[in-house]
Design a protein around this nucleic acid. Structure first.
Lengths: 159, 159
DNA sequence: TGCGTCATGTCAGCATTCTGACATACAGTG
DNA sequence: CACTGTATGTCAGAATGCTGACATGACGCA
């Protein structure tokens, strides 16, 4: 029973999972009144910061497949929160952009999500936040390089 | 565009998600040759450390619903990796335990997973690991209390 | 010009996990 | 003993995300 080193009480992986699960639940709770899921919010947020993104590019940024992004975007488009330019400027990629309705909804969502994140972050010493970000990023980088490219999604990010 | 505070480059939530996504992918990669998913591995691991657990208790420990655990356990039982005592000692709870086959497979899985986690953790200064665990735990606790009980799963953990 | 490759959008099917619901078994209370 | 409450196991359906596959448009190259 004394295996290599899976002490549950000090597994970083488990601690990460717990934190993410709690965060996701909390975000779900504040986004539900707005009729958004966490994935949908992530899409809107990215789209606001990078208008004209294609669906495939958006998928990479939100760490899902472009198929998943496709169905998700369909729902958002039907609700009038975003629109896709009818004219493909270059290849097949259709630039996406928020409608004014979508932008307004995103503002509410951003405020709510920011409150959740602020509350979470306030649970630790402010001086450690920056270091924490660096460490988490180091984790992702270490794991991604190990497994070869295309770890988070099916392609590299285009930057 | 200058909203409350959703600077993507320094969002703790996003950093957490990236790290967890990368970790999950890496674990999937090493567990796939063994025919296990991350969820299945988590079940086996918990079961090895706490033999006699009921399915519902296992669900709480692995942060899923007992319905999900049920279907997952069915698969593991059919593969002969675990067995449930036919006699309910008390209520309806059927104690679960690993078979020797399951224990052997878990040993391989544990070794593989430990290697992934070790590799991830080695990306940061060893002195910060303990603090990181404390901080992540503080995140989860802060979020859980906010949203009321029953955040991670549908019930509190029985400890 | 024609062909191979790649990225994208899209459809279909499958897997996983969730919510909802129901039956059962025990504990507590009258 | 009967009634209520709680915990568990289990089934059914829906939601979400994945893999696989295909068609299309752009680009590089002979």
């Amino acid at each position: 029973m004394t295996q290599p080193g899976i002490d549950v009480t000090r597994s970083v992986g488990l601690a990460l999972k717990r934190a993410v699960t709690s965060l996701r639940t909390a975000m779900d709770d504040v986004l539900r009144p707005l009729g958004l899921t966490v994935s949908q919010y992530a899409c809107l947020e990215q789209l606001a910061q990078r208008p004209g993104l294609s669906a495939a590019a958006l998928a990479r940024l939100t760490f899902v497949t472009r198929q998943s992004a496709h169905t998700l975007l369909q729902g958002l488009e039907e609700r009038g929160l975003l629109e896709r330019s009818a004219d493909p400027p270059s290849g097949r990629a259709l630039p996406l952009q928020l409608t004014s309705t979508g932008a307004a909804l995103l503002r509410s969502a951003s405020t709510a999500v920011a409150a959740v994140e602020t509350h979470m972050v306030s649970a630790i010493d402010a001086n450690r936040v920056d270091q924490l970000l660096v460490d988490l990023d180091a984790f992702a980088s270490a794991l991604d390089q190990e497994a070869g490219p295309a770890s988070g999604a099916q392609d590299e990010l285009p930057q």
